[in-house]
């Protein structure tokens, strides 16, 4: 199967590979997929007090399309508000990377990873405020 040049580029030169402290209150972590299905994505976002995504990191176990999808979204979410990031659609990812139909699930997983990271951040931020209020 031939991969698009963009997929190959992200596979060979992945952007924003790494991990952030998942216990930090300004970090949201999304872990989606399953090893048995051949894809696991971990996407982390670091959010400023103003609600802007300052940084993003990923680690992905999966095929080239899964690696490229997650690498791409780390580039896309940086500088966006949480609402803007949540609006990224799998079809945008699939179009950008020219994914074939059998690889659409990789873009779906990347969209899920963004949503999971935002949800995790919000739940932690909410807890933080509760703690402050309680304190």
């Amino acid at each position: 199967m031939a991969y698009s040049d963009k997929v190959v580029d992200h596979y060979e030169h992945p952007r924003n590979v790494g991990s952030m402290d998942k216990d930090s209150t300004d970090v949201g972590t999304g872990l989606v997929g399953a090893p048995a299905c051949g894809d696991v994505m971990k996407l982390q976002i670091k959010v400023s007090p103003e609600g802007i995504i300052e940084d993003a990191k990923f680690k992905t176990f999966g095929c080239g399309s899964a690696i490229a999808s997650s690498s791409l979204v780390t580039e896309w979410v940086k500088g966006k508000t949480l609402d803007e990031a949540a609006a990224i659609k799998n079809t945008d990812i699939a179009n950008e990377l020219a994914l074939p139909p059998v690889k659409i699930h990789c873009s779906v997983l990347a969209e899920d990873a963004i949503k999971a990271a935002i949800k995790d951040y919000k739940s932690k931020a909410g807890q933080g405020e509760d703690e402050k209020a309680a304190g």
Binding site: A34, P35, A36, C37, K59, F61
Partner: peptide, 24 residues
């Protein structure tokens, strides 16, 4: 492996079987 979250978990001593994965 440098990209793999599973490799990191392995290095941290996490048993991958203990995690509730969302099968898709």
């Amino acid at each position: 492996r440098s990209l793999s979250p599973l490799w990191d978990m392995h290095l941290e001593g996490v048993d991958l079987k203990s995690i509730q994965w969302a099968e898709h």
